[in-house]
Design a protein around this nucleic acid. Structure first.
Length: 272
DNA sequence: AATTAGTACAACCGCGAATCT
DNA sequence: CAGATTCGCGGTTGTACTAAT
């Protein structure tokens, strides 16, 4: 229901974008703004599906996208946020001004996960999306949900988490904090300040290499499980309190989670 | 020089949630 | 309120490029 038809089924272009397509899309959005992706291609004179246009704009053409290599401070922040949030790339991207979720996801998959494995950290092969709280429609809906079927396989094949309840925050559409929290005293602001001045020691300048296994008595492996509930956030806190800014970053997320979950819904820890 | 393997990243796909009618 | 539509997310795939053999 409601799914946009695949491009191939309606004879639309697929694959890499040409310079001409890019310029058509850019000029259309400059004149009319984002949104209405469904009707945009037709109006812009593009033989693409709206979904493809949106993706191209969001991940490549937007003027505020930061090009170039991901720096060590960004890398450090990605790693920490991934420990905290799992594969919630859009949330992570929201903390990295100018970076897209796709870029971070790619960087993680092709670069960081391997790097961390080499360093001896246990990386989740697959982040099971947290089981969603039982909204009235949820269980009655699907049948063959990919993500959830994967999740249940994972759960059942792994005795350690078989009966675990996972904190399941209500999914919300995400807007990058640097655009919606401009006036706040958020960590993002500090990060932006820091990252805009590469020569200064930033608030996130923490030596990852110092996080050896031994430093944490082997407990670090638990980060591979993920921190989907408040109990785990407490545990996570031990690792992320390396400086004040990270504390605030952690607090921010912790607060968000607490707001959503309510005390009686807090899941039991995955590891006990 | 040719082939193979590995890497990086753009793009696609399927899904659920939000929003609209 | 229900069904339809749109949007956004995360997993996966395809392919261009580079390094190694």
């Amino acid at each position: 229901m409601g799914r946009a038809p695949c491009c191939s089924k309606v004879g639309l272009h697929r694959g890499p974008w040409t310079a001409r397509e890019d310029s058509l899309l850019i000029s259309y959005i400059q004149n009319h703004g984002e949104g209405n992706w469904r009707s945009l291609p037709k109006k812009a004179g593009l033989l693409r599906c709206g979904k493809s246009c949106r993706l191209r704009w969001m991940n490549y053409l937007r003027p505020d996208i930061k090009r170039g290599n991901i720096g060590p401070q960004e890398e450090d922040l990605i790693i920490r946020l991934h420990c905290l949030l799992g594969n919630r790339w859009s949330l992570i991207a929201g903390r990295l001004p100018g970076r897209t979720d796709n870029e971070i996801k790619n960087y993680w998959n092709s670069h960081l996960s391997k790097k961390l494995k080499k360093q001896g950290f246990a990386i989740r092969e697959e982040t099971p999306r947290p089981k969603r709280t039982a909204t009235p429609n949820y269980h009655n809906k699907k049948k063959n949900n990919n993500n959830n079927s994967k999740l249940s396989e994972t759960m059942q094949s792994d005795g350690a988490v078989e009966n675990a309840k996972i904190y399941a925050p209500k999914p919300t559409r995400f807007k990058p904090t640097w655009s919606v929290m401009e006036k706040s005293e958020s960590v993002t602001e500090e990060y932006e300040k820091g990252s805009s001045d590469a020569s200064s020691g930033t608030n996130y300048d923490v030596d990852l290499a110092s996080w050896s296994h031994d430093d944490h008595g082997g407990e670090f492996d638990q980060t591979a499980v993920g921190f989907h509930d408040a109990t785990h956030l407490d545990f996570a806190a031990d690792f992320f309190m390396q400086d004040e800014s990270l504390q605030r970053l952690y607090d921010e997320y912790s607060q968000l989670l607490q707001l959503e979950v309510g005390a009686n819904q807090l899941a039991e820890p995955l590891m006990q």
